[in-house]
Design a protein around this nucleic acid. Structure first.
Length: 273
DNA sequence: AGATTCGCCTGAGAGC
DNA sequence: TGCTCTCAGGCGAATC
């Protein structure tokens, strides 16, 4: 399930494959994703355009085109982006095919259709489109001072807080669990009871976990693959996610699985307070 | 008004 | 074997 590290891995892999290429034919499955796929806008703004840059904002991938339009993707739960020879037969759940030069195609495949494809016209401000999103956890804006301020007067449990994209982008269920274990903090702790020193651990350990996951190529749970179709290996390094009943790698106590805000939450009661 | 739950969607796995 | 049920989760809407 693509969270920040997986989207970053796709972003880094996709860049060299598509930058400098020109988009030709546009095809869609006709099925809606989380939002309808804007076929007319895709034809209007991508056909004949050259891809200048691939970048990431939170869990969104952005293809910046030379006509100043931008193609925005969200991978949802099961979205994949990859480059294929145009002669490769369509796969089940391919929802968008963009023809590129040299007989290649960029394809968006999404089994559960929780993904999003949007076009930003040159007039539409990217800042406005993403205005509700909080800072990226890998950037300096994600600081102790910011978290102290954001958490003031809120009693929300720490894990829900970290998964709230208005607070910080890119952290989903897997990495929220992992970051809190690394930081030694309980997922249930009300955020207004977290000290500065503890927020500092959230920042430092959070960045460290995300960077290690990117370096490992992401976590391949639910069949994540990068832009070249290869899996990641961070699932082998997970300390709590999916490890209920197994010993904590730090203190040996059994990892517990609980439901919090409707989501599977994994923690060690021995070393997370 | 802040916190939680629901619903969208498909496929894997469990249980009968 | 083949059916039904449960679970997985990002995220916005609905509800508590």
């Amino acid at each position: 399930m693509p969270e920040l590290p997986e989207v970053e891995v796709v972003c880094q892999g996709l860049g060299p494959l598509v930058v400098g290429r020109t988009i030709g034919r546009v095809r869609t499955s006709g099925l809606p994703l989380r939002l309808p796929v804007p076929l007319a806008a895709l034809r209007r703004w991508t056909k004949g355009a050259l891809v200048q840059e691939v970048r990431r904002r939170g869990k969104y991938l952005i293809l910046a085109l030379d006509n100043q339009a931008r193609l925005v993707f969200h991978l949802g739960m099961t979205g994949r982006l990859g480059l294929f020879p145009a002669v490769t037969p369509q796969a089940k759940h391919d929802h968008l095919c963009l023809g590129l030069d040299e007989g290649m195609e960029l394809r968006f495949n999404d089994t559960r259709r929780f993904g999003v494809i949007q076009v930003l016209t040159p007039k539409q401000e990217e800042g406005e489109f993403f205005s509700a999103l909080g800072p990226d956890p890998l950037l300096p804006e994600f600081s102790v001072a910011y978290l102290v301020e954001a958490a003031a007067r809120r009693k929300q449990p720490l894990k829900s807080f970290l998964m709230d994209s208005r607070v910080v982008v890119g952290i989903g269920n897997i990495y929220a669990n992992e970051i809190l274990h690394e930081a030694g903090l309980s997922p249930l702790r009300p955020v207004n009871q977290v000290s500065r020193a503890e927020w500092q651990r959230v920042v430092t350990k959070g960045r460290a976990v995300l960077k290690r996951a990117i370096a490992a190529g992401g976590s391949s749970i639910s069949d994540f693959v990068n832009a070249s179709g290869r899996p990641g290996y961070f699932q082998l390094e997970l300390k709590v996610y999916g490890r209920q009943g197994e010993p904590c790698r730090r203190c040996g106590e059994a990892i517990v699985k609980e439901t919090q805000a409707g989501r599977a939450t994994y923690s060690c009661k021995g070393c997370q307070r």
